[in-house]
């Protein structure tokens, strides 16, 4: 059970108020009609599954209903930051992490 800081409610809340919605920062292609089947398939189905830092999008379903981003360590389950949709992460994702 995580405890998650909602950047909109500005409070830590229990995990059962939230719903995870998968990998963050998936840009919907601006011109889907011009994508090849492969490009579209990559957008639709291919997701990262890293050991270590991962950025996910979560929704505060039982609270403010807002979506926001989480940078989370998939090994230690440590949440390093949460930030609003449209904002940028402050974590250097390339930096190697110890787990």
């Amino acid at each position: 059970m995580f405890v998650i800081y909602c950047p909109y409610c500005e409070e830590h809340r229990e995990e059962d108020e939230f719903h995870a919605s998968g990998q963050a920062h998936l840009a919907r292609p601006l011109n889907p009609d011009e994508c090849t089947d492969k490009e579209w398939g990559d957008f639709l189905y291919f997701r990262k599954n890293p050991r270590g830092l991962h950025q996910e999008i979560w929704q505060h379903t039982a609270g403010c209903r807002k979506f926001f981003n989480i940078t989370r360590n998939t090994v230690s389950y440590e949440i390093l930051e949460t930030y609003k949709a449209g904002e940028r992460s402050k974590i250097d994702m390339e930096k190697p992490q110890h787990d």
């Binding site: 719903h19 929704q59 379903t61 209903r65 807002k66 979506f67 949709a85 449209g86």
Partner: peptide, 13 residues
């Protein structure tokens, strides 16, 4: 409802 919110908040704010 969540789908509409996702589309709005993340793709077309």
């Amino acid at each position: 409802l969540n789908w509409l919110e996702l589309c709005h908040q993340t793709d077309w704010p």
